Amino acid sequence: MTFEVPAVDITAYVQDGTVEERAAVARAIDEACRTVGFIQILGHGIARETQEGLASAMDDFFALPLEQKKEYRTPPGINRGYAPPKSESLSLSLGVESASRMNDFFEAFNIGASTADYPEAAAAGVIDESDYSPNTWPDRVPTFEPRVQAYFVEAKRVAETLTTIFADALGLPAGFFDAFTTHSLDVLRMNNYALPPGTVDLDGDLTGMGEHTDYGIVTVLWADQVAGLQVLGSDGAWHDVQPADDALLVNLGDLTGRWTNDRWMSTLHRVKPPIVDGTIQRRRSAAFFHDGDVEAVIATLPSCVDEAHPNLYDPVTVGEHIAAKLAGSRAGVRNAAGRETARVLSAGT
C-alpha cells in the first residue's frame, strides 16, 4: 500500500462556502485524520508575501554568527528565543531511553503568545508569565519582529479555521474548541538545518530532529520543498513528506489524539536532512503550534468511547501535558509516555 499525505482544499471554510461544500471538506479532514494524521492544506489564504516575509526574517537571523545568536537564548523552562544546535532531544519528549543526550542537529528560534496578548486573563490571574512568557526579539535583525508577527497572525487564523472544521468533522457543536482556546498557548518555532562547516561530525547517523509527536491540538507547518521530514506510517515504516506547491502541512497533536481516543492520529514524525558532499542540505521550516489554554482540561470525547474502543486516557490539563513534554525535549528529563514510546521502539529505521 502506497503512503500518501492527503491534500484538502479548505477554501469553503476560509471563504463563505455552501453547507454542502463545507460538509465535503469536513469529511475529507476526518478521513485524513483517521488514516494518516498529516494533511496537505490548500486554500489556506496566507498571502505569498507574508510567507516570503517570514522566510526572509529567518534567513536574516540564522545568518548571524553563532555567538550573536546565543545572546537570545533563554533557560530551558522558557519556550522562547534561540535554541542552538544539539541543545535538544525531542525523542526524550516520548520517553525513549536511548535518547540519552542532546543530539538534534538543528537550531531554532521561538516566539509565542504572551500575557500581553491576553490582558483580561492576565488581569484575572488565570495566566502568568511562567507559561505566557514575553518574547525575546533579536534587535540585531531589523524588522524581524513585524515580518514574523505578520505570519504568526495568519498561522493562528488557519489553526482556528482548522478547529472549526474539526468540530464539524467530529459531529461536535459549532465552536466546541473555542472554550479551550480563549488564551491558547500558541508558539511559532522557526527551524534551520543548514549548519556551518565543521560544526557537525558526520561519522554516524545524523538526526536533524528526533522522532516525536507534537504536543497540542494542531500544528500548521510552513516548510521548504526539501527532503528531510519523515512520517511514521501505519505500516511501521518512515516515509518522506514534502509540502506540495502552495500547501501548508498540518498534523494533529497529542491533545487531539487524547480527545478522540486515538480515533484521530497524533502521528510520529522526525527530520533527517539530506547530506550532500559531506554537508547538510539547507532546509527551513516554521511550525505554528496551537496548543490550547494552559488550565483547560482535556478529557476523552464520549462519542469516541464505546465497548470496542475503551477510554485510553485520563483527563489532563494542557499545561501539565506540555510541561512534561518540554521537560523531555529541552531539559533532558525523560517523559513517561508509554504508548508513544512503544510506537517509536517498534518502528523501523
Rank of each mutant, 00 (worst) to 15 (best):
A7Y: 15
V8T: 09
D9N: 14
I10E: 01
E20T: 08
V25N: 02
A26V: 03
F38G: 00
I41P: 08
H44W: 03
E49K: 11
S56I: 15
K69H: 03
K69V: 01
R80Y: 07
S89K: 10
S89Y: 09
S91R: 13
S93A: 14
E97F: 13
A99Y: 15
N103M: 05
N103I: 06
D104Q: 05
F106E: 00
A113I: 10
P119Q: 05
A123P: 04
G125R: 02
I127S: 13
D128C: 02
S130Y: 12
W137Y: 04
D139I: 09
P142S: 04
A150H: 10
F152L: 05
E154K: 10
E154S: 12
E160I: 00
L162C: 09
T163A: 06
T164A: 13
A167V: 09
A169W: 00
L170M: 09
L170S: 04
V187E: 13
R189P: 03
A194P: 08
P196C: 03
P197S: 11
G198A: 01
V200Q: 08
V200N: 05
D201K: 07
D201M: 05
D203Y: 14
G204M: 06
D214S: 14
V218M: 01
T219K: 05
L221G: 12
A223N: 04
A223S: 13
D224T: 02
D224K: 01
G233N: 05
W238L: 07
G253T: 02
D254S: 12
R263M: 14
V271P: 01
I275Y: 08
G278R: 04
T279R: 15
Q281L: 15
A286H: 02
A287L: 07
F289I: 08
F289M: 10
H290I: 15
D293F: 12
V294L: 03
E295T: 11
N311R: 07
P315Y: 01
E320I: 06
A323T: 12
K325I: 11
G328H: 05
R330C: 10
A331C: 09
A331I: 01
R339M: 12
L345I: 10
L345T: 13
